[in-house]
Design a protein around this nucleic acid. Structure first.
Lengths: 189, 189
DNA sequence: TTTTTTCGAGTCAAAGTGTCTTGTAATTCT
DNA sequence: AGAATTACAAGACACTTTGACTCGAAAAAA
């Protein structure tokens, strides 16, 4: 059962796939989420409209695929010297991601859309980008045995919740000092 | 300069205003944010389309006005017996607000929209409903002198951030036990 | 009574939606 | 080689929303 036979017919065009992904990313950055349309993406990517609808059913899906890989890359860091430096570096990366990176812009757009679109909510729940990255850092900091008997999700929320909340609700751009204060507070618990 | 003379012309109809607000609220609950349209709201409120556009420029603005008052009411609680009970009760109210109340549904929709619409972002920043309510509770708990020299915004984010993050990113519905654990953690810092 | 502003109702062009059609290209199966 | 299958770009199609606009009527101050 290891090998699936090659599917019939003309294979999917990787060129077309990438063109759509890049067009979506560019349009989000240049014109904003509201101005993004399926029609506009198809035209910009020089791709048939049906080709877009065949593989994605909404602009949210396109955006998710376009940004997920970048998000993971930007939030995956080498281990720091000590737990405080490690956590602090992660919060700093998260802050930059949320406020400055294209992928972060897409993440916020998606999280936003998830609040009033059930399908997007499932997508976001499924590809839990932030959570994955945060868990790695938390485990590293807790290797010595702290955080015993605490739910993973609760810890993730404790770590990223305050920062994410401030960015989402106010467009706040934190200083390094505030970030390391947050890191210290998280570790003393 | 205390008194402004009465404006000329036909006064704004309070009936029309309320009809629009109620129509928007009902449509959000019954059909969801995506299905809400300016046209639909006007028709349901039995109001001219121009009347809607004259006073509000987007469905987000209507929703904000429709839910702001309710939100404040639902999140304003009588003081509790002790700080822990007080904070715990607030988190419980916040959780119910976010996951079950109509106004909370509107709040999440607005916070979502703010992520990809600058105008909505300013509206949300301006009418900082959650922050106002949280500050009251925090001040009450800190009356004895805790939390000295800490920025208000930081404290608000510490208190509500983890809960809000979990609801926004996963539609999570917390138990009473988890809420009081969060309250205790917030007070021991 | 005149002026000013709002009211409900509706028209209109522009744009997006998602499906469908047409003709062509790429790949596997017989 | 030829048939079957699937993807491709281009665009037609009916439907909907948008936001500016027009119309005549109504409500209040000057």
């Amino acid at each position: 059962m290891g090998e699936t036979s090659k599917p019939l017919g003309r294979p999917r065009s990787e060129d077309a796939r990438l063109a759509v992904l890049h067009a979506a990313d560019d349009m989000l950055v240049e014109q904003g989420y509201a101005a993004m349309t399926m029609k506009g993406i198809a035209e910009r990517a020089k791709v048939g409209r049906q080709t877009v609808y065949r593989w994605w059913s909404s602009k949210a899906e396109i955006l998710l695929e376009a940004s997920a890989a970048d998000a993971v890359r930007e939030l995956t860091l080498p281990p720091g010297a000590d737990p405080e430096a490690d956590i602090s570096a992660f919060l700093s990366a998260l802050s930059t991601f949320l406020t400055r990176s294209d992928a972060g812009l897409a993440y916020r757009a998606l999280l936003g859309e998830a609040q009033h679109d059930g399908k997007v909510a499932e997508l976001v729940r499924g590809g839990d980008v932030l959570g994955e990255a945060a868990r790695v850092v938390i485990r590293r900091a807790g290797a010595a045995g702290a955080f015993e008997g605490e739910r993973d999700d609760a810890l993730v929320a404790e770590l990223v919740g305050p920062l994410v909340f401030r960015v989402l609700s106010g467009g706040w751009d934190p200083t390094e000092g505030e970030l390391s204060a947050m890191a210290r507070r998280f570790l003393r618990r």
